[in-house]
Design a protein around this nucleic acid. Structure first.
Length: 402
RNA sequence: GCAGGGUUAGUGAAGCGGUCAAACACGGCAGACUGUAAAUCUGCUGGCUUAUGCCUUCGUAGGUUCGAAUCCUACACCCUGCA
């Protein structure tokens, strides 16, 4: 009965493409712009679903590759789908495994700067031995868990994501790195197009074969790295496909994030939702929303939190640093999150040094709350016309006094 | 009391005549982290106006040697066995 629907509620005057809206899914609504929390393995790391909810998260994004390996998509299907399995009643997304084509492939054991700093790749000192190999038809993965060999194709990614049963799923794509040459980007893009067509076909087949399943929406994925012609070309191509929304992915130069997003949103149909994959730095969020992005997801709040950094209005603060040892203030005085309401920097510093599990939880709660609150504030600001003010006020402080 | 083993940088622990300011681990300090191989990774970790340099270190005090954390002697403390 409930299917997928996206409606735009309000928008800013051009040239801004910022807008608010609502995505309706079988598991509930998402007010956009929205930050989607990442729960790769059907768990937002260190957080219970109640905590995820308390942080005002509207939806969770999991990963087809990880869940296929463990515990297996069939098991999740048997459990009644992702939402039920993980006890998250709200909307869910799954990524196709496309990211792992890079992270386990050419990017394996490398520090890949996904948003293009000065150096795009720094090879780690450990020996590199990739675990993913791309060809025209698909990707061969060697499990990071036990080395076993697996073959991903667009069809299998769809079967996995269909079984997992998230509300929004992504076509299988290849993520390239900024360091890949132009010729390779073209070659890869052809592959991603082919895989998108095959994803649609397989997805339609599965949908017809299982008419009683809750409705799932398929999003096409836009790649093209830092090249305007490629991003526009692939966007035009994807715009013509029968998909219900778009994921914008790939290595994106931070300096030109807004511009790159704009090339894409220029070419895509306005009435469909656009998800920017893997972005959550405050300045990037402003840029992206201004250029027409409706949803984001990112591992950063939880990962960075577990590793000791807290988001603040003055950038990320490394709470494990010795200067916080006897700092008895909350992470942010005015922050309404559970962590800031109840715990001090000194306590968090201690928990992180002692590797106490509670530390990871409290840091994750704060960081998720912080980023979600930012996007919520932006949503309000679009509705009441104060977007530019909010942005200016925010960015004035963020990279200062770090 | 006798016999044997031990004492190395914040901790644990390698080293057993020169290539030793001394492996490694932990800890400490700093940094990184953007569709999670990530409770991870990187760098530094005796001192010095940071250097293919100098100085002070390997229980304490002497000694052997061109040269000692490494060999010898004495002492101190610790452990094990026998009395």
């Amino acid at each position: 009965m409930t299917s997928f629907q996206f409606s735009v509620k309000s928008r800013l005057a051009r040239p801004s493409l910022a807008r608010t809206g609502i995505i309706r899914t079988p598991h509930g609504e998402i007010k956009t712009p929205a930050f989607i929390v990442v729960g790769t393995k059907a768990s937002v790391k260190a957080m219970t679903p109640e905590q995820v909810s308390s942080v005002n998260a509207q939806a969770v994004l999991a990963n087809a590759y990880h869940l296929y390996l463990q515990p297996g998509h069939k098991l999740i299907e048997k459990a009644g789908g992702l939402s039920k399995f993980m006890n998250w009643p709200g909307p869910t997304f799954t990524d196709s495994g496309g990211f792992q084509v890079l992270s386990l492939g050419s990017g394996y054991k490398k520090v890949i700067d996904m948003v293009g700093g000065e150096s795009t790749e720094i090879t780690k000192k450990t020996k590199t031995e990739r675990k993913a190999f791309v060809d025209e038809d698909g990707v061969t993965f060697f499990s990071h868990l036990n080395g076993s060999r697996h073959r991903f194709t667009a069809e299998l990614s769809m079967q996995i994501q269909h079984a997992i049963g998230a509300d929004i799923i992504f076509a299988f794509d290849e993520l390239t790195s900024l360091a890949d040459p132009y010729d390779y980007q073209i070659e890869s893009l052809k592959r991603t197009h082919d895989w998108a067509l095959r994803s649609i076909e397989e997805f339609n087949r599965l949908r017809l074969a299982n008419p009683t399943r809750p409705y799932q929406a398929l999003f096409g994925v836009i790649q093209g790295a830092q090249y305007e012609d490629l991003r526009r070309m692939t966007s035009k191509f994807m715009a013509g496909l029968p998909v219900e929304g778009f994921g914008i992915g790939g290595a994106i130069e931070k300096k030109r994030l807004g511009q790159i997003v704009r090339w894409v949103t220029d070419e895509l149909p306005e009435e469909k939702p656009k998800h920017l994959l893997g972005i959550s730095e405050p300045d990037d969020i402003f840029e992206a929303i201004d250029n027409g992005i409706d949803t984001f997801d990112c591992v950063s709040p939880t990962r960075v939190g577990r590793n000791g950094s807290a988001y603040t209005y003055f950038g990320r603060q490394n709470i494990v640093a010795s200067r916080f040892r006897d700092d008895f203030r909350p992470l942010i005085e005015e922050c309404a999150c559970y962590t800031c309401q109840n715990y001090t920097r000194a306590y968090l510093h201690h928990l992180l040094h002692a590797k106490e599990l509670l530390g990871y939880t409290l840091m994750s709660i704060h960081n998720e709350y912080f980023i979600i609150k930012l996007v919520d504030d932006i949503r309000l600001s679009i509705e009441n016309g104060s977007f530019n003010n909010l942005r200016a006020q925010w960015l004035k402080n963020y990279y200062k006094d770090k």
